[in-house]
């Protein structure tokens, strides 16, 4: 072992104890690098996810727009649900 070897663990008695695992709610909105609008909320207790919610945060009502129209046009409308 070389002389100047430094141990990886450098913890001394004066160091404060590590912070407790995080708890609370984490919200990520907007989720990026996707098509559309997405919001994620997670409930965290002691560093672990205990509950989660996802929400699409955009609505156009394409089903309502299509009602009563010529069925031959359906593909032209529904194609625009997602352009990716």
């Amino acid at each position: 072992m070389p002389k100047n070897f430094l141990p990886i663990v450098t913890k001394t008695s004066e160091e404060p104890p590590p912070p407790p695992p995080p708890s609370g709610k984490v919200v990520i909105d907007p989720i990026t690098r996707i098509e559309g609008h997405l919001r994620i909320e997670v409930e965290v207790q002691n560093g672990r996810v205990t509950d989660a919610w996802s929400a699409g945060t955009m609505f156009r009502g394409i089903e309502l727009v299509m009602q009563g129209r010529d069925p031959r046009d359906a593909w032209i409308f529904t194609q625009r649900i997602c352009g990716v």
Partner: peptide
């Protein structure tokens, strides 16, 4: 630009 940017959530805003 939400579709291509690296940050998300609060950092993107």
């Amino acid at each position: 630009h939400e579709t291509v940017m690296v940050p998300s959530g609060r950092m993107s805003i």
